[in-house]
């Protein structure tokens, strides 16, 4: 059994540094690097024991802190006449801390917006299965994203029969084959088909994958377009030049 101990909840190395700077009441523009680094290392020693994966981000920052300290200790090369004043090695870190701090503040205010909004209830649990009129689905108000398409593809793959043994074999289809297959299927169905109908008849995952790639290729060529009638609704695949062929 693994015990997970929640320490002070830091979102990352910058968050921890801001905390240490505040706790020690030091000047952000004159950070005592060695002292802050010492405390920082103490902390990551603890998280390393608890959460090795999460610790890696913190270790990178520890290395950065030590590098800054080393830079500050090294004798500076003599400044030439025209040269600008040398940058403090800590400046880059301060800039990052300030930028992170800005977004941390915004995130806090957004949490307020969130809780205000959660007091307002809208009507919901609408039935998602809205009847689709096959020729009436194109609505510019709706938009789909590549993410929707990938999501739908993942669902179809999950529906496909699972194969437990694995034989190495030549893939029996090519992108070109499947492009022809898609176009043929579309032509047989008045130029449009539901995305799942297109892939459902294919029994092998690899053929589904090749067909999906072929669909992406057809979209890229502009021969086919894809649209979704509602959020989480069905995705239609449509032959772009179908109507002009009639």
């Amino acid at each position: 059994m693994i015990y997970r101990v929640q320490l002070e909840n830091f979102e990352g190395p910058l968050d921890l540094l801001l905390y240490l700077i505040k706790k020690n009441e030091v000047d952000l523009f004159n950070i005592p690097i060695s002292e802050i680094t010492r405390q920082y290392l103490e902390y990551i020693e603890i998280i390393q024991m608890l959460d090795l994966e999460g610790a890696s981000d913190f270790i990178l920052m520890a290395a950065t802190l030590i590098r800054i300290k080393a830079k500050m200790l090294l004798p500076k090369p003599p400044v030439e006449m025209d040269e600008e004043e040398e940058e403090d090695p800590r400046d880059e870190l301060v800039r990052r801390l300030l930028e992170y701090q800005r977004f941390k503040e915004v995130a806090l205010k957004m949490a307020d917006f969130e809780s205000q909004r959660q007091l307002l209830y809208t009507r919901r649990y609408f039935n998602q299965q809205v009847e689709l009129e096959p020729h009436d689905w194109w609505d510019p108000q709706n938009s789909y994203t590549l993410f929707d398409l990938m999501w739908a593809f993942k669902e179809i793959l999950q529906r496909a029969p699972k194969v437990t043994q694995h034989n190495v074999e030549q893939i029996p289809v090519t992108i070109d084959d499947q492009i022809n297959y898609i176009l043929k299927q579309l032509d047989q169905n008045e130029g449009q088909l539901l995305f799942y109908e297109l892939l459902e008849k294919l029994k092998k995952r690899i053929i589904m994958i090749v067909t999906f790639l072929s669909l992406l290729e057809l979209i890229r060529r502009g021969e086919v377009e894809v649209t979704q009638s509602s959020t989480f609704g069905e995705i239609w695949v449509r032959r772009k030049r179908w109507t002009s062929l009639n």
Partner: peptide
């Protein structure tokens, strides 16, 4: 700024 930073704490 230090003050502003400290007020940002959760």
């Amino acid at each position: 700024i230090i003050e502003a930073l400290s007020s940002g704490d959760a």
